[in-house]
Design a binder for these strands. Structure first.
Lengths: 168, 168
DNA sequence: AGTTATTTGTACGTATGTATC
DNA sequence: TGATACATACGTACAAATAAC
């Protein structure tokens, strides 16, 4: 492993961040795997613990890693999987902004898609979709009425979707 | 101003974060205002510069503050205004996750809402809505067909919405 | 059950670089 | 030029959670 460039214009923590990111993308570590501890990164890359920590925290921030005090730092689930969760979690963003959001699910049922919908969403003929109508609220004020057609393959069943809807 | 509790279970940077947040919510500072520098916060609250910085960075993270090197730290635009941008920027989240999202707007026009929609979204009788049909894609794969009815008051006109749609 | 080692979390101090004024 | 403010980076110490013995 080549050393980091301590005289570079690019901050050390950023260089380290990239190294870690690459290692994950190259599948050197898999989701759930423990990556080296801060102390180990210190030795391996010749940086201070603070710098190692900062690099890790950046990656935690973007959802690539997660940390458990006393245990270690681990590779998070792949981006796609995460973002599929995020698809239905607009309100999570709102909550992070302190907006106390609430989505009221008006309708949620499996339907046979019309030809038009099937074409738009590129489904096979036999695939079903779930239709969900949601009234999206922030601070108890509705702001958006939304109808979504979700390929059934994306979520295993209605219950799961409902659950996602709740936490979303 | 009461001092922070250095012996509390709640971390200092978290306490300071709350103080700053409250000051902003109480309108002691307005959007665009400069808040005290790290050094000033050090003196005012009796914490180290690192701790002051950490508190600020947390608030930057959630979009309450923003910083400009050499100038200072400033209060960001109100949350609601920000989140209204976020309403139509699912894809921003996806891009942050590296998913190269693209929303194809299939339809976008001003319509008279049906009574049902008007009731759901709590509109006055004379208010119009914008109907938007979007095909949401990630990595060139469509995953969701969405119909939204957006109160006209939320966005000034179709052009603005389209713009938001583009960057979203 | 208790002790120790490991790992992350918090907090301090210091120094230097970079951008703005 | 100098003063101010944020950015990066080092070091240190102790606390808290976990795991292993």
């Amino acid at each position: 492993m080549e050393p980091l460039q301590h005289d570079s214009l690019i901050p050390l923590y950023h260089q380290l961040m990239e190294r870690l990111k690459v290692s994950i993308e190259k599948k050197q570590w898999s989701p759930g795997d423990k990556i080296p501890s801060e102390n180990q990164l210190m030795d391996q890359f010749g940086v201070s613990r603070n710098t190692a920590k900062k690099a890790i925290e950046e990656l935690v921030q973007v959802g690539i890693l997660y940390r458990i005090q006393g245990k270690g730092t681990f590779v998070a689930k792949p981006k796609l999987q995460q973002s599929l969760m995020g698809f239905y979690s607009f309100s999570k963003v709102l909550r992070e902004k302190g907006l106390n959001p609430k989505d009221i699910i008006l309708k949620i049922e499996e339907v046979k898609p019309t030809a038009k919908i099937r074409e738009a969403i590129q489904l096979r003929e036999d695939e079903h979709v779930i239709e969900m109508k949601r009234l999206r609220c922030a601070n108890n004020e509705p702001y958006l009425l939304e109808t979504s057609f979700i390929p059934k393959g994306v979520v295993s069943d209605k219950e799961q979707l409902k659950k996602v809807g709740d936490i979303s």
